[in-house]
Design a protein around this nucleic acid. Sequence first.
DNA 1: TTCTTTCTCAACCGATTGGTTGAGTTCGAG
DNA 2: CTCGAACTCAACCAATCGGTTGAGAAAGAA
Lengths: 128, 128
Amino acid sequence: MDQLSRTFAALADPTRRDLVARLTAGDASVAELAAPYAMSLQAVSKHLSVLERAGLVTKRRDAQRRPVHLEAEVLAPMTDWLEVHRRRAEERYQRLDAVLNELAADEAYPATAASRPSPDNQTLGSRE
Amino acid sequence: MDQLSRTFAALADPTRRDLVARLTAGDASVAELAAPYAMSLQAVSKHLSVLERAGLVTKRRDAQRRPVHLEAEVLAPMTDWLEVHRRRAEERYQRLDAVLNELAADEAYPATAASRPSPDNQTLGSRE
DNA sequence: TTCTTTCTCAACCGATTGGTTGAGTTCGAG
DNA sequence: CTCGAACTCAACCAATCGGTTGAGAAAGAA
């Protein structure tokens, strides 16, 4: 599995998103992080391992404790991917809108339609 | 499973991200979308169902064809979540930085350090 | 040393995932 | 009406997921 898939998958769970949210307030030990949840400590430890494999989190060691640290910069590639594709979809929508406006103009002023090579050879419908 | 988890999970797969990427260029039928992949048509159809359940995509019907349309605005909640938490982590980092600068200032002008309880209690060396 | 806390590892469980094949269904074309 | 194209549905499979319990390991405290 690639890196981007691992990070998306890591955040596709409410518990893990909650863990990330809490870690924005600062590092915390596994036990501290596990305390609020109904599930076992081991379950939370597993969730943290998933976040760690995705690179979203690192564990330091301090005696028995293993303070967890958020690596927030790993969120960037996801944001980038989302922004790029949202923008592409948006751009296409803009172009489509322009085309529709063009058609509407032709409807409003049919005299300008005389420049068309052939009235029923609708070039716009042919793309796609 | 909640909405945000479904959208994150939907994008946690390279094939599905690729489908979304191609749909930014415009609607396409299931067969058109499936063509480039080594897997079966049914497998791609399943991927599209996952995207549909996540709300990322809708299917229109046109005779036998089922043109798929990208609903790009559904990407926004993910971007929002990521931005909010990246920002929180960043803000905390700024505050921490300010604290460290404050400590560094105490080092630079030791006269002000008279307020310290004990001089050899080196607080700076203890982190990392 | 022994006790306790903190955490990981391993085995297990039921549900879900990502793929397969095979059998329909729907609908236009000949 | 029949044929083929475009899909969906259903059953199956191996692998992964999200949880459990139980058994350590590691390290400070008594």
